[in-house]
Write a protein that binds this DNA or RNA. Structure first.
Length: 424
RNA sequence: GGAAAGGUGGCAGAGUGGUUGAAUGCGGCGGUCUCGAAAACCGUUGUUCCGGAUUCCGGAACCGGGGGUUCGAAUCCCCCCCUUUCCGCCA
């Protein structure tokens, strides 16, 4: 959520920011409502102030045994007048809140202006020693490998749940489990994160807190009877851990890492890149979440990306880092880096991580504050990044580590977790 | 699913219609004492919004949420939500 005061005082800046995010501009309507709202507040509060005085007088005069009839009827009249104004005010407030809830975050100045993913800027790439984009043999894709080695079963997944619900079998399951454990341990041991194992269902407030609701309602699964939502990312429960809390300055920054299954409806995206793991309704992800002081959040973002990269370097998976342009930035993010890993069979880069700074956008929605040096309450900045999502990463691992015979060498970093070195 | 209890300030915990934004304790902050610290003592200490002023002043609202009664509600009534405990069921 953006601060209404900030919008009021920087309306041109806000308009420009929203436009760069391809966002329909409701700023003028918002400011108009805000103006009416404030006028009405002034009006009703004057009435209420008078009423409070009258009530106090009534109490006093009554104690002294005087007549209060006249005052009581005045108070009654004020109460009547206030009622309709209060209703009007409530409606304005609701309209204001609704617009604010739908308004995305503004891009940071350092974010390149652009319309779509094509305008994203590659900031760096890393390739393992001896890596070549051209293979000496024709690589099998991950679906073919999964089938041949009997480690992935997309067909039976479709039978028991629907398309986009992969089943991991045997060494495939073990590899998946190894990958999750490796990533968690790596962040805990080397990057100072505290592990969180969160609930996979959250309530409506949590979904609003991180910005999934109201805008992305179509993208998520729902449990209507209980008004709960299967999480699309562990970002939701972990960030909401501190919803409605005042954190002490001493405990910042807070670093959490957690594994969760992630559930996404992916409504409307059928047909495009939907083969195998490329687009699924359920996948596994290790997520890093940070709560930090505002002045440090952009340094923390860079560190977050480095933390995610470290995993890929350990796994020796080729990747590149993109700085997303304004038009490709998600609803809540002020700045975001995507990490893409290389798929030799698809012959393209696949998004395996997204690392974002939300500044105070989520903190304002979720009401997460800390007391600053001046003893004043201030919203924290929140960040999160995948560290990483296993599904797309698994594509890159399987395809990059395949032998000409169609076997898979287990990456060295994972071998102590799998207990085997080869899948054949 | 059944039954009971309860939701009050950073925390603990009083408060059943009229200076109660709320006793008391803890914590926090400032001070006295001290070489320093602890202890002790004194003082201070909520949030949000509106209006005006560059440390502030005035006003409004807030005791789980929403309605209602009343001149006046933390306090009375109704609805909802949540938590805890017990029973049942169950991995």
């Amino acid at each position: 959520m953006l601060d209404i005061k900030f919008i009021r005082e920087n309306s041109e800046l806000v308009k420009a920011g929203l436009a760069s995010k391809n966002e329909f501009n409701k700023v003028d309507e918002l400011l108009d409502i805000d103006k009416k709202r404030r006028e009405l507040i002034t009006k009703t509060e004057e009435l209420k102030s008078r009423k409070n005085k009258v009530s106090a007088d009534i109490a006093k005069i009554k104690r002294e045994g005087g007549n209060v009839e006249e005052l009581m009827s005045e108070s009654r009249k004020i109460a009547d007048d206030t009622k309709s104004l209060d209703d009007e005010l409530k409606e304005l407030q609701n309209n204001l809140d609704t617009i604010l809830a739908w308004l995305p975050n503004l891009p940071h100045q350092s974010v390149p202006i652009g319309k779509s993913a094509e305008d994203n800027v590659e900031s760096r790439r890393w390739l393992p020693d001896g890596f070549k984009f051209e293979n000496d043999f024709k690589p099998l894709d991950h679906v073919e490998l999964g089938k041949k080695l009997k480690i992935l079963d997309f067909e039976r997944g479709a039978k028991i749940s629907g398309s986009g619900f992969p089943v991991y079998v045997g060494k495939g399951a073990a590899l998946e489990r190894a990958l999750i454990n490796f990533m968690l341990n790596y962040h805990i041991e080397n990057h100072g994160y505290t592990e969180i194992m969160p609930p996979f269902l959250v309530n409506r407030e949590s979904m609003k807190g991180t910005g999934q609701l109201p805008k992305m309602a179509e993208d998520m699964y729902t449990c209507e009877k209980d008004d709960l939502f299967p999480i699309p990312t562990a970002e939701v429960p972990i960030t909401n851990l501190h919803r409605d809390e005042v954190l002490s300055e001493k405990e910042l920054p807070i670093y959490y890492v957690g594994y969760s299954a992630c559930f996404r409806r992916e409504a409307g995206s059928y047909g495009k890149d939907s083969k195998g793991f490329l687009r699924v309704h359920q996948f596994n992800k290790v997520e890093m979440v940070k709560f930090v002081k505002p002045e440090t959040s952009y340094d923390e973002l860079e560190k977050l990306v480095v933390n995610a990269e470290a995993i890929l370097k350990e796994l020796k998976v080729p990747y590149r880092i993109l700085l997303l342009c304004t038009g490709d930035l998600s609803f809540s993010a002020a700045k975001c880096y995507d990490i893409e890993t290389w798929s030799p069979a698809e012959n393209k880069w696949l998004e395996a991580s997204s690392c974002s700074n939300f500044e105070s956008f989520q903190a304002r929605r979720a009401n997460i504050k800390f007391r600053n040096d001046d003893k004043k309450l201030e919203f924290v900045h929140t960040l999160n990044g995948s560290g990483l999502a296993t599904s797309r990463l698994m594509v890159s691992i399987l395809e990059n580590y395949q032998t000409p015979e169609g076997k898979i060498i287990v990456p060295k970093a994972l071998q102590r977790y799998t207990g085997f070195e080869i899948i054949d």
